[in-house]
Nucleic acid binder design. Sequence first.
DNA 1: AACAAAACTGGACCCTGGTCCGCTTAGGAT
DNA 2: ATCCTAAGCGGACCAGGGTCCAGTTTTGTT
Lengths: 226, 226
Amino acid sequence: MFPVLYAVFMSAALQPFPKSQQPPAQPELLQLGPAEDEPCLRADAARNRARLLEAAARLVAEHGAAGVTMEAVAAAAEVGKGTVFRRFGDRTGLLTALLDHSEKKFQAAFLGGPPPLGPGAPPVERLRAFGRELLRRSVDEMDLQLAAEPSPERRFSVPVRRLHHNHVALLLRQAVPDADSEFLAHTLMGSLNPVLIHHLTGPCGLPMERLEKAWCDLVARVTRTG
Amino acid sequence: MFPVLYAVFMSAALQPFPKSQQPPAQPELLQLGPAEDEPCLRADAARNRARLLEAAARLVAEHGAAGVTMEAVAAAAEVGKGTVFRRFGDRTGLLTALLDHSEKKFQAAFLGGPPPLGPGAPPVERLRAFGRELLRRSVDEMDLQLAAEPSPERRFSVPVRRLHHNHVALLLRQAVPDADSEFLAHTLMGSLNPVLIHHLTGPCGLPMERLEKAWCDLVARVTRTG
DNA sequence: AACAAAACTGGACCCTGGTCCGCTTAGGAT
DNA sequence: ATCCTAAGCGGACCAGGGTCCAGTTTTGTT
């Protein structure tokens, strides 16, 4: 029942960003034990990290994600501004860390959980489930997801996104071996982007069911099924 | 031969941003005479606008779009910083204005030019042509396109994008009347996003032909043709 | 020509993300 | 217990986007 596969960047996705650190290679999927959240942080550093996350969470709850400024977080955690940046790299990193728990659960579910999200179901069905779940999460954690949207340059290189992308590409390759799964995966992931979902459910007022239906239809068309 | 249809926001897309200005309604397409670039600008304002655009263009040529700072532009145009913002709203607005000429030509082409891009060809063929052209433009004007990428909040509300979106949605409605063209249009537009194209052609190193092929294949799948 | 209203100007100012670097401290080695 | 060193710290500092408003210029009116 516990996930047996952890995908590439699984751990990197949840670590701080020592800027120049690059994963040595890009294997498609890696088998890993459950990665340590905090591999070898000094005691004080670990404590500060926790305080920062707690402070950030409190601020989000109080003022919404948009009002979470790095200085405010530092102040609330009674820590220097530099510490925040060293630990989380940048604002996006901090916000991402707040979404970490939910993300991990999601990853466990689609990598090793029960079908249809996890392995065992046919790929098309897994794709449908994957989208449904991502939609649900986008709505649930909307403001954080929006605030955590990476800058354009990083939009496609953020580890979490790459992992999702690789997963979708893998399923596509199984479902439609003759297609350009790389490109199609980007297309599919694009329609699940939190910013788009927010635009559609917010300003455009589309109801959730319509999105789910549209997603399933999209999957059907792209895979030429249904 | 000259475009007879100008789409909604055609003029708004090319105007400065008096922040609170909203187009009164959202008709799908509007018939308009060629909109004045500068409807009723005071003489000095018009002159400053021209100087700013010229200065910005020069800076882009010299230092690349990334290095174009608002203050630098103001200085180069020998104008106050405030003037830049009043005229163009924000950085994105300024950069967008630089792309204006090319954009107008493109709009004229797909709204009223010769087939397959313009009216006359079957919708699926027009979609293929539309994507090809957008891809070409993305590559040609890459750095400007990237620098002009709007902030997430505006990504889907920027007039130019809405226009493109509406066009694609219209074609989709013709090609697949039973589908959710609104959503599918977002999907298609997402795969033509300059940021994605840059990611694919740059870091990922995909050749242009592959993208064109993938685009055509995507259109075929989405419209269940081919 | 004189005047008033509207439009425009520009630079001082604020905010926030992000960097830097000299100082401090944890914690392993001796 | 002491020392040494790498890791960590934090606040001063910077840059760049965006706002504001007191003063200036344009332009239409009488």
